[in-house]
Simulated assay, not measured.
Amino acid sequence: MLIDTHVHLNADQYEGEVDAVIERAKENGVEKFVVIGFDRKTIERTMELIESYDEVYGVIGWHPVDAIDCTDEDLEWIESLSSHEKIVAIGEIGLDYHWDKSPKDIQKEVFIKQIELAKRVNLPIVIHNRDADEDTIDILESHDAKSVGGIMHSFHNGTDEQIDRVLNMGFYVSLAGVITFKNVKRPKEVAQYVPLDRLLVETDAPYLTPHPFRGKRNEPKLVRLVAEEIAQLRGISVEEVEKATTENAKRIYNI
């Protein structure tokens, strides 16, 4: 069995189809789904989903792209919701230097506030990092993120040194469909470099659809393709990847 550790079943793309999407995933051996809420709308939808489906868990936080819109009231609201027994982490939080909606200083401020929030509620953190590897890891190290631990979501392009720093904080590395793309090199190297007891699999669906379905809407049923690619790259069985990544997910998310 597999756990999709990062999926957006709360996205508009799945409106009216969640039952069918979950059923298709179960038919492909996916037993649990961790849904990420990252703004008011998706957090509200996440709370609805975790109440409606036994196999769905939630992660809530404020996305760095929208950091400029985040208020103290929003963070207080997230903190109040985090006491729900099926909220398993704070996220996805971090830094995103690809898009320019939110200035870097505001992103950093909101990121740090949410690390401190996670410490108060004793939950791990799920990190979104795009084109901001060094600043992201520096903040995690300097603000004692090691005390809560967490996941580097879709962390396909870090250097060996950066991965080592992340692992030294007790973090896990989650890989998505990017590692199946034919024209990538570093993501495949990362899939081999990270110790098996620190690897997770995810879809980030409806985004990052794996080969050979690239260009179509992603679904959690396709997380199996990520596990199969890891197994092929590492020269081990798919069953070994399933077992390890499922145990890892249950450990970090405490489920």
Rank of each mutant, 00 (worst) to 15 (best):
L2T: 01
I3D: 02
D4E: 07
T5P: 06
H6M: 05
N10Q: 04
V18S: 02
R24I: 10
V30I: 12
I36Y: 08
F38I: 14
D39T: 08
R40P: 08
K41E: 14
K41W: 06
T42S: 15
R45E: 13
T46D: 05
L49R: 02
E51G: 15
S52M: 12
S52Y: 03
E55I: 00
G58T: 01
G61S: 05
A67Y: 05
A67C: 13
I68N: 12
D69L: 14
W77A: 06
E79Y: 09
S82N: 08
H84I: 12
I87L: 15
I90F: 10
E92Y: 08
I93G: 05
L95G: 02
L95Y: 03
E109D: 14
I112T: 08
E116I: 07
L117R: 07
A118L: 05
R120Y: 14
N122C: 04
L123S: 06
L123M: 09
I127Q: 03
R130N: 04
E134A: 11
D135F: 06
T136M: 03
I137A: 00
S142H: 14
D144P: 00
V148K: 02
G149P: 08
I151Q: 09
S154N: 07
F155G: 02
G158S: 10
E161R: 08
E161F: 09
Q162I: 13
N168S: 14
G170D: 01
V173C: 07
S174M: 00
K182D: 12
K182N: 13
N183F: 07
K185D: 15
P187S: 03
E189R: 09
V194M: 06
V194L: 13
L199N: 08
V201P: 03
E202Q: 13
P206H: 12
Y207K: 08
L208C: 10
L208V: 10
T209E: 02
H211R: 06
F213I: 01
F213D: 09
G215I: 09
R217Q: 12
E219P: 10
K221D: 12
L222S: 02
V223G: 01
L225S: 06
L225A: 08
V226A: 01
I230W: 09
R234M: 11
V238N: 03
E239I: 04
K243C: 07
A244L: 06
T246K: 15
E247A: 15
K250R: 15
I255D: 03
